[in-house]
Every structure is written in C-alpha cells, then in structure tokens.
Design a binder for these strands. Structure first.
Lengths: 102, 102
DNA sequence: CAGTATCCCGGCAGATACTG
DNA sequence: CAGTATCTGCCGGGATACTG
C-alpha cells in the first residue's frame, strides 16, 4: 500500500514549487504582491499565456496563491500569495543564497 | 542579451534539484551517505535504472554528488553528496518543514 | 482583459536487450 | 554490478485562433 515516494514527502512538496514556471511566479509575487494576469506575463515574457494560466491554476489549487476576480468590464484579476505561499519566502531565499554561494 | 530568466537565478538553482528524481536522491543520500548504484535503486524503486543513471549524471555534473568508481570485479561504485550538496541540507529541511506544517 | 480550445510536434521517459 | 543502446509511445508545451 504505502509506497516509498509517499514516505519521502519532500518530493510532493517540491512538486508544488517546481513546475516549469512556478518558482519564477512565486518569486515575482514576492516582489510584486498584487499582480494582474498580463502584468505577470510581462514579468515573465518567456512563459506563454497558456502555461501561465496552467501554472497559476496549479499554484492556486495547491493553496500557494489566491486569485481575486473582479467581474467588471474589461475583466480584472489579481493574483497574490496566500499566507501559506508567503511562508515559502525563507526557503526560496535559502535556495537563492545556496545558488549564489557555490 | 540578458534575458529575464537569467535575472531570476532561483529558476536555475531550482532546476538543479527538481529533476524528476533529484530531490529524492539527495534526500536518500542525506540519510545514507554512501550508496552504491543498486542500493539507490532499492531505495527509490519507482525510478528506472535509466532515469537513475541520468539523474545521477546531472547531479554529478552540477557538483551536488560525487561518484567513486572502484575498478574491481564485479564493478563497484559509490555515490555521496559533495560539500556543496551537503549545504542543501537546511534548505531541504526547510522545505520539508514547510510541507509538514500546511 | 483574461483567459480557453484546438492542433501538433519534439523530446521525456518506460521497456527491453546488451556490455565491460 | 553498473551501467549503455535502441526503440517507441505519450504528453508537455508552443502557436494560433477564439470567447465572455
């Protein structure tokens, strides 16, 4: 029943931030706490709209970011980190620090 | 010349530990400092021999693990974390902690 | 503006067989 | 034991067009 991978939750945890663009999105949202869809696009121009939408959806599903939708015309959305997402800050910074040092 | 992604090194850094099996391998090598190829296979049974070899090669290339080859018969190898790899310990633990809390 | 739908291709990764 | 070689199928992700 219990598989090895489940005993090693680091894998599951890492998946939540290691999608093709997730870390960058989180990183950007740490710098820019409130972002609209197109703002994120401009901040991460290499990421296609399709992928941005998909990754945002996963991040939202995993409770790392939250999305506020304003049903105005034209439509407006705002993405920001949840409390859970913000708690990643020291970890992300630790990673950066590690990357910088080597 | 300079692309956005290069200004955001977290992405590069994360890639070094977010291959399909890298985090698990690092994790296992933190628990078991010296591992032979087949030992790692047994510790991570869901990972094919092919993938294990590929991921190990990348980890070695990135300087996270080192490989010692003993030209005996039958051949014997030993994988372990480098100093650089060991420095990831607090980060990995931070990730685990974050994953545990939520 | 903020996405979704659809088509399509290259490359990731499994299975299997082989080697020093 | 510790890998590599090859073949193949699948799906991640780009490009483009469309929608509320």
């Amino acid at each position: 029943m219990t598989k090895q991978v489940e005993d090693c939750p680091i894998e599951t945890t890492l998946k939540q931030i290691s999608g093709k663009w997730k870390s960058v999105i989180i990183f950007r949202l740490l710098e820019h706490p409130q972002c609209r869809f197109n703002e994120l696009q401009k901040l991460i121009p290499e990421c296609s709209r399709r992928m941005l939408a998909l990754q945002l959806k996963e991040l939202e599903h995993d409770g790392l970011i939250s999305k506020t939708f304003y049903p105005v015309v034209p439509p407006k959305t705002e993405y920001s980190l949840t409390e859970r997402g913000k708690k990643l800050k020291p970890v992300i910074e630790g990673l950066q620090e590690w990357g910088r040092i080597n």
